[in-house]
Nucleic acid binder design. Sequence first.
DNA 1: TAGATTGTTAATCGATTAACAATC
DNA 2: TAGATTGTTAATCGATTAACAATC
Lengths: 216, 216
Amino acid sequence: MSKQTKISNAVIQRLPRYRRYLNELKKKGVDKISSGEFSHLTGYTASQIRQDLNNFGGFGQQGYGYSVEGLYNEISAILGLDKGYKMVVAGAGHLGQAIVNHTYYYKTGFIVTGIFDVNPDLIGTTINGIRVMDYENIVEFVEENNIDIGVICTPKETAQEVADKLCFAGVDGLWNFAPVDIETPSYVATENVHITDSLHSLAYHMNKNREAANKK
Amino acid sequence: MSKQTKISNAVIQRLPRYRRYLNELKKKGVDKISSGEFSHLTGYTASQIRQDLNNFGGFGQQGYGYSVEGLYNEISAILGLDKGYKMVVAGAGHLGQAIVNHTYYYKTGFIVTGIFDVNPDLIGTTINGIRVMDYENIVEFVEENNIDIGVICTPKETAQEVADKLCFAGVDGLWNFAPVDIETPSYVATENVHITDSLHSLAYHMNKNREAANKK
DNA sequence: TAGATTGTTAATCGATTAACAATC
DNA sequence: TAGATTGTTAATCGATTAACAATC
């Protein structure tokens, strides 16, 4: 399927964005789109779009463009979104609840199968119909239910420890929301979502704008 | 202060990460660090670290290295984190609550001043001591309280509309968590935090790992 | 002073854009 | 067929890395 072995991360990070726009087009009933039109919509150059897609195969048709639905499906398959994933959430605080809620609201192939916390007040309650369990049992649960992804929604102080436990239990991926960089063995994929970093970038750009405004 | 007018976004995005590591060093009581040691810690090359910092000024000392606290303060100032920011949160669901909670827990210069929702069941309740108000009054509130940043925690369907309202009311920045790309006038800085995109990248990397494991 | 490490210029590498031949 | 638009190669641009003179 793949034409090239090593695809740069920059390309991979653009794929979900392409897919989102294709999904919108699909909903609007648009059948086909050219790289030029898609460029106009997404803000990426037509050249880059074609270049990116041709890392994986020739999905278009000369003189015509790309099938919206076809391309959507191709990108979904490249990302592995044609498969299902079972997740556990470690930490049933507001962030954990938000994640559970989010995956519930925007139905996708990622299914929260278990939620865990150390707080006795939370254990036994349910979030979107899923029972919150004792964190002590997380390894056992992951092993028995073949969980694919661990979601870390704990405070940063315990995040690495939780990650180690989840890796030991056999997850293939970690989705970390604690504001630290989680270290994992190379065979466990990890995404550190640094929400606060983006807020700091925002502050920088706000101040740039303000300085520019003051100069006038 | 700045030596150069145009700093690339790649550089800006590394600054919060540098700052996080410096903060950890500070807490451990480390006084100074060389670019070599910092490289080892952060995973960036020593060359890149020095190159990045020298976009803003010579913060180090030859033969010695960088003062941990001094550099932390410099980066904070570059990002504008020596200032305070007032935020309003639009959407008091789980995600909105998580943001309020997060800024409360990790005390920073970003202060949530108001929370707004359309749901009558939520209006009047409090989150971390902050009253949830009627979304109808958000523009008035932003204008009267000189709010700097609007945080969008609504479903994607209403996100752009909320953004337009906040821009009209006079915020300088938008921090968007809805899974759409918000469009704003150039003088309003925007960070679209695409949580789901990172999950899709994670799926890609998980499948890469699995394929590699199967080949063996 | 000698040693260490920065600041900065030059070289390399990779990613983006432009151009155009292939083809539907 | 003629027109349109892809797939792909070549050119450009920018970002990262290497090297080293400056200097604490």
